[in-house]
Design a protein around this nucleic acid. Structure first.
Length: 410
RNA sequence: GGAGGGGUCGCUUAGUGGCCUAGAGCGGUGGUCUUGAAAACCACUGUGGCAGCAAUGUCACCGUGAGUUCGAAUCUCACCCCCUCCGCCA
């Protein structure tokens, strides 16, 4: 959420962001509602002042008259404020200067690490490898869980936990506080984190006001809701391991086979809260980016870093880099990581603040990035490290977590 | 799940319809005094909205939301959370 005063003073900038993202928000309506809101607040406050005087003097007649007037106006104000709030939640974040404007074709590959894996035999995809090695069971997964269901088995399970543990340990070692967050969250957390109103249909609802989160970013951001830090408590750096749930209602027919797009998976996620300074935010953005790339480097996976275009990035992001990892079976790069600067967009909704050196209270800046997500990353591991005989070599850094160095055919 | 008790300013607490513009103590900040410190004394000490260049004014906030009333921290209803006991349970 943006500051209404910022919107009023920088209407062009906000409008530009809305248009560049092809977001559906009536900004003129919002500004009109805000005028109404302000004028109603003045009127209501004036009447309340009158009421307070009358109550103090026990002037019941005046009080009754004021009450009548006030009742109508307060109702009107409530109506305007509700509409206003709804629109405020729909306004996307501003865009940072380097964001390319346009659709997916404007995504910009800014760096490649490693080369797409070459084979001197016909490589298999992870579906076939998973079946042959008896580590993934899609058929029974679908039988039990439905569409996009899967069972991980045997070495598949160990590899799954190994890669998650590896990423978690790697970040913990860098001083990130490790967390296992709740994944059933209240509505405010999803709204505050910027998942709602845009991603509502992608979210499982499990109670009147309870939802299964699609990322640990949601509980991690909500963790400090309504708190005010002292400046020396910042930055807050977290790394969380959690299950993630996504309905994928918006992606019917996309990636319907395999582990690429599933309803439930696990993810190690990094979150940083820092001072409200764009340069500081950018510094942490680079740090989070390095962390993720280091993990992929250590795993020996080829990848490319993509600067996301205005239409492809999320509504809450001011700047977003994705990492796409080479998946030999698809013969393409597939998204495995997403790094975001959100500025104070989420912290304003969640009221996460800090007291600056000069004593003023400001909203923190927030960033988040994937460290690793599994089983999606298993696609890259299995497909890139497969051998001609169908066995798969495990990257050395994972050996101490898996307890084996390759997965052999039974 | 059942039965009770409770949520007030950073902390402890007073407050059961108008004297609450929420009082007190503690803590914090500044000052007086002092060679310095402590003590004592004095002052200040929440967040947000709106108007204003500002000083300032005004409104809202006593867990949250609705309601009753001329007037609500106080009464009513719903919800959330915490504590105690009982039951169930990994």
């Amino acid at each position: 959420m943006l500051d209404i005063n910022f919107i009023r003073e920088n209407t062009d900038k906000v409008k530009k962001s809305i248009e560049a993202r092809k977001a559906d928000v009536d900004l003129n309506m919002l500004l009109k509602l805000d005028d109404e809101r302000r004028s109603l607040i003045s009127k209501v406050d004036e009447l309340r002042a009158k009421r307070n005087v009358a109550a103090k003097g026990k002037d019941i007649d005046t009080g009754k008259k004021v009450k009548e007037e006030l009742d109508g106006l307060e109702k009107e104000l409530k109506g305007v404020e509700d509409e206003w709030q709804k629109l405020m939640y729909q306004v996307p974040n501003i865009l940072m200067d380097e964001v390319p404007i346009g659709d997916a074709s404007k995504n910009k590959v800014i760096r490649k690490e490693g080369e797409p894996t070459k084979f001197n035999f016909q490589p298999k995809d992870h579906i076939e490898l998973g079946k042959k090695l008896d580590i993934i069971d899609f058929d029974r997964g679908v039988k039990v869980a439905g569409f996009r269901g899967y069972f991980l088995k045997n070495e598949g399970v160990k590899l799954h936990w190994a890669v998650l543990n590896f990423a978690l340990g790697n970040l913990a070692q860098k001083g990130y506080q490790v967390v296992v967050p709740p994944v059933i969250n209240k509505g405010f957390a999803l709204l505050g984190g910027g998942q709602f109103p845009w991603g509502e249909e992608d979210t499982y609802k499990v109670g009147d006001d309870e939802y299964l989160v699609g990322t640990a970013e949601i509980p991690l951001m909500a963790l400090h809701a309504d708190e005010t830090f002292n400046i020396d408590e910042l930055p807050k750096k977290y790394v969380a391991l959690s299950p993630c749930f996504r309905t994928e209602i918006g992606s019917y027919g996309k990636d319907t086979k395999g582990l690429y797009r599933v309803h439930e998976f696990y993810k190690v996620e990094q979150v940083v809260l820092c001072e409200a300074d764009e340069q500081e935010s950018i510094g942490f953005f680079e740090e989070l980016q390095e962390n993720s790339e280091e993990i992929l480097d250590m795993l020996g996976l080829p990848y490319q870093v993509v600067l996301m275009s205005s239409q492809e990035m999320g509504k809450k992001q001011a700047l977003q880099y994705d990492i796409e990892t080479w998946m030999a079976g698809r013969e393409s790069y597939g998204e495995t990581h997403s790094n975001s600067i959100c500025l104070d967009f989420q912290t304003r909704r969640l009221k996460i603040k800090y007291r600056d050196k000069d004593g003023t209270v400001k909203f923190c800046h927030a960033l988040n990035n994937t460290a690793i997500a599994s089983p999606r990353i298993l696609i890259a591991l299995l497909e890139n490290f497969q051998q001609e005989d169908g066995s798969v070599k495990i990257p050395e850094v994972l050996h101490k977590y898996t307890g084996f160095s390759e997965i052999r055919l039974k």
